[in-house]
Amino acid sequence: MSNVDDTAKPVASGTVEKTDSHFHAYGKNRLGLYLTLPAQILVLFIALFPLLMQLYISLTDWTPLTGVRWPQAYQLWSGLANYADLLDDDRFYGALWRTFFIIIVAVPIEFFLGLAMALLFMDEFPAKRLFYSALLVPMMIVPAVAGYMFFLLFQSGGPINQLLSLALGTKVAISWLSDPDLALAAVIISDIWQWTPLMFLILLAGLLGVPSEQLKAATLLGASPWQRFLTILLPKIKAIMVIALAIRTIELFKIFDTLYIMTAGGPGVATETISVFIFKITTQELVWGYVAALALLILFTLSVIAGLAMYFLQRKKREVAA
């Protein structure tokens, strides 16, 4: 994350110039412009029109059901009514809360499982390569098929209950997907299954990057594994932990594919996340002005959060440097 301050805030450029001296000795070079131009164009391409259009129709009650084409949406001008409705929509808050709940539960579990697995794989042992590859397989499975398989696994007469019955010694017949709480649990379990491998992969990369001499030295000095972890490994991989957590949080906020195929947001709205909510009101209720307002509200909120996160990371970095 060290790069953030180089770029996001020119304030930090004092330290930057020192390290980049030779490149900058030639002054600003056109090559930099050419190299970044395609990305700028793509961002502008995907952001400009959609955002302007969303901004426009979010101020109207436009829906395709009115027979009015979107450029004429002003005929249905409603001012800020959509935003007001949004702030008063329990279903929206419910979906938001559920999304955060899934994040709050799934991300830490994925993180600790991934970290534990990564620690197990730090040193060499027979057949390590094989185990390591096999453990990465879940994230290579197309989420759609994972959704169908989990739907079957979680049937009341299905394999998961059969395994539980075996383990507990009594007959288990839980209706996972028909119970609002358990359906949410099932969705979280499927996400943990699919994405713990990514956590594992990233954290293992971090752990293996720690110089082995330091670990050896600590062992010779009689440090326990726990002490070695706390004093040597943890500080070294802190940054990578933040990255791993950030990636999963960002991706989980949009959770849709597996979940939608497993439960379609049901039963009722028990597993309706933000993405499922948007999908449903976009494709069924067709209140597109409302969807636009929702989109902009989310974009605004997320931008503030992302901006703040970058700002704080950068400040911390500067403190460390100072």
């Binding site: 119970d179 039963p267 009722g268 069924q284 067709l286």
Partner: peptide, 22 residues
């Protein structure tokens, strides 16, 4: 009639809530 989807969704949503005991 117009609003069919919205009417059915409202009924559906509440029936599901009744079925799941909420």
């Amino acid at each position: 009639y117009p609003g069919a989807t919205a009417f059915h969704n409202a009924l559906d949503e509440n029936l599901m809530a009744a079925l799941t005991g909420s």
